[in-house]
Amino acid sequence: MGAGHHHQLYLPGGSVVHRLPPQCKLIAVFAFAVVVVATPRERFWAFAAYAVLLGVVAALARVPATYIVRRMVIEVPFVLFAFLIPVIGLGERVTVLGLSLSVPGLWAAWNILAKATLGVAASILLAATTEPRVILIGAQRLRLPSLLVQIAMFMLRYMDVIMDEMRRMRVARESRGFEARNFRHIPVIARSAGALFIRSYERGERVHLAMLSRGYSGQMPIIHDMSASVPQWGTALALPAVALAVLGLGL
């Protein structure tokens, strides 16, 4: 169904990582990503240590390595770009296997690859151990504007419904012998997109009516409250704290 990146990443489980409150995990992953991005690219061993840290988290969460690796395809376009940098980069050049490559370009490529890979892996771990709706509760706890949280909530709820509608329209097109092959077929796709928009918009209006019918007056009633204890914060923040310590060791 559709492109790979539409698949939900959540892997149900009951591990320590799964059970941590979402707001703790969000902050932990974000802080970890910031530490990774701020690490000087020459510090190879620091990146190795970060990878080990993520490996430990994955093991604790019982997320198989193959699962993470398979989900990393999302990164491919930028990996390709990263491989280009040494070729078109500036500065001193070295010859590797007959190719003239830029030294700063090689560094930059390594820098982007290492940091992006660690970032993607950390995000995958977060998404694999936390249900989307729970992540939203965490985001709300972290004072993300509630309107934004609600919009994201509705988007997640209706994503599959709309993708299904799109799929049905594609099946309808293809069963009448249509296949998008070249530029001339764009109008057909655009008409489908237009129809999809109208359906989405009208569904939005009906959902609003359904909400009104059950007493909605602009505020989401508070149904959940997930508070986090100090030990839970401690457990979650261990990840960025250790990463920061690794970074600090080299200063």
């Binding site: 909530m153 509705f154 988007m155 209706y158 709309i162 993708m163 569904r203 959902v207 609003h208 989401m220």
Partner: peptide, 14 residues
């Protein structure tokens, strides 16, 4: 919330 959410889902699909 519902309108923007549905339109966001539409953009995501498109």
């Amino acid at each position: 919330a519902p309108m923007a959410g549905l339109v966001a889902a539409f953009i995501f699909a498109v």
